Amino acid sequence: MTTIVEARSGPSRERAGPDAEPAVLERELTGAVLAGAVRADVLRTLVRVTGLQMRMLSAEGVPLATTDGGSGVAATVADEVLAGVAGPVVDTLDGLRATALAVRAGTTVAGVLLTVGTGDPRTRALAGAAVTALLIDAVRAGDGSDEVPPRHTPADVVAALRSGTVSPSVWAAATELGIDLRRPPAGAVLHYSGSRLRAWSTALAWLEHPVQQEARTAWTVVTGEAVLARLRSRLRLMTGDESAGDHVVAASGSHPDSPTGLARSFTEAERLLGLARARGVPLLTFGGGGVLQVLLPLPRAQLQAYVETHLGPIQERPELMATLRAWLAERGSRQSVSEQLHLHRNSVGYRVRQIKNLLGTDPLLPAASAELHLALAALDLLAADDERSRGDDEPV
């Protein structure tokens, strides 16, 4: 079997055949390209070892070299493959299924390598062995690579993740910042309510963590609750508000399945932040949100409808609402509710009877208790959303 090394520089000591190992193939292809082989030679070798046709596309999805004369893919598909949010199986413009592989390293983007057909893991590994060779060829040729300039600041990256628009350049910039978008982190938001606004901005600048700031609020990404707690602790210390924990409040959303899902995670974090501030809680995460995990995705109209259905008869009676919360929290202990609300035990009993009559159920029945807990959480979330929409940011 003739290899591209033989074709360009004489007999080879290593010959990649159908049973080639990816590591051996990578050494052969890299050595061959350094010796003068071009991407068309690389593709022909891949056909021999995989038995499948190959197409090398530009970053825009346009064919640069193919072994079957086939078409490329839509520019949006190529962009998503390079950003890691699409693939490995894609549809070509000529109606075939293909396995796509991003050919890039850092900020150097050579394009997309297509293996026509849905290859098995071994076939994908063999295709991956060609990445280094194709990158070398692209850089040497000067017509098949796009050097992505480091034009995205950390704030730009966070802003792009918040909007769910992850382009290849954003992906590359995120990688340089240590953000692994193959395993997307959670969106997080922090809010400062103290008086040292300049110290807050300075603290964020010195945080050594990608942050987007708008006055009192800052957005970032975190891999877990421990990271968020550490960031909050540092900001408290750096703003001089270490003894006033409620001056820095933090929240984080869920971990999405893909980078585009970060937009939802940031929305969850913002809603949780509003709830944390309303409840006086310094830190609230999606994982620790309990029933809030069910409520966060729901639109406002559905939350309002649920609250009206289960709390409507007493919603405008603040004394009964307070009693219901305490009654549920204390699991029906009249003495505990009496002490908490500073009421006589008989007054607690009278209010509870009113609640039962107006709601038409006993709040302590398991099914009713679950519904009322959920309705109260929905009500809190709506109130937090109202507070967040009013906003209290000031210019720094």
Rank of each mutant, 00 (worst) to 15 (best):
N357R: 15
T202H: 10
L135S: 04
A32M: 09
A129Q: 06
T175S: 14
A129F: 06
P297E: 00
V307A: 03
R151S: 14
A110Q: 08
G164N: 06
A172S: 09
E28M: 13
S252A: 14
E21W: 11
G312A: 10
P150T: 07
G31H: 06
F266I: 03
T220L: 04
T76P: 04
T239N: 01
H152Y: 14
V47M: 05
S265D: 01
A7C: 07
A368E: 11
R234Y: 03
P184E: 05
S145C: 10
S265M: 04
G288V: 11
A110E: 05
T108P: 03
A269Y: 01
S167I: 09
S243A: 15
G142P: 07
A78G: 05
L292M: 13
G332A: 07
A105M: 10
A141T: 15
L320C: 04
S201Y: 09
L262H: 02
T323Q: 02
R55I: 12
V89D: 06
G274W: 00
V227K: 12
V24K: 10
R44L: 10
G290D: 13
R97Q: 15
R230T: 14
T99N: 03
A74F: 08
G111A: 09
P210D: 00
G61V: 12
L272R: 01
W206K: 14
R27G: 06
F286A: 14
A141D: 13
T123N: 00
M54F: 08
E268D: 12
D91C: 08
A102P: 14
L34Q: 13
D137E: 12
H373C: 07
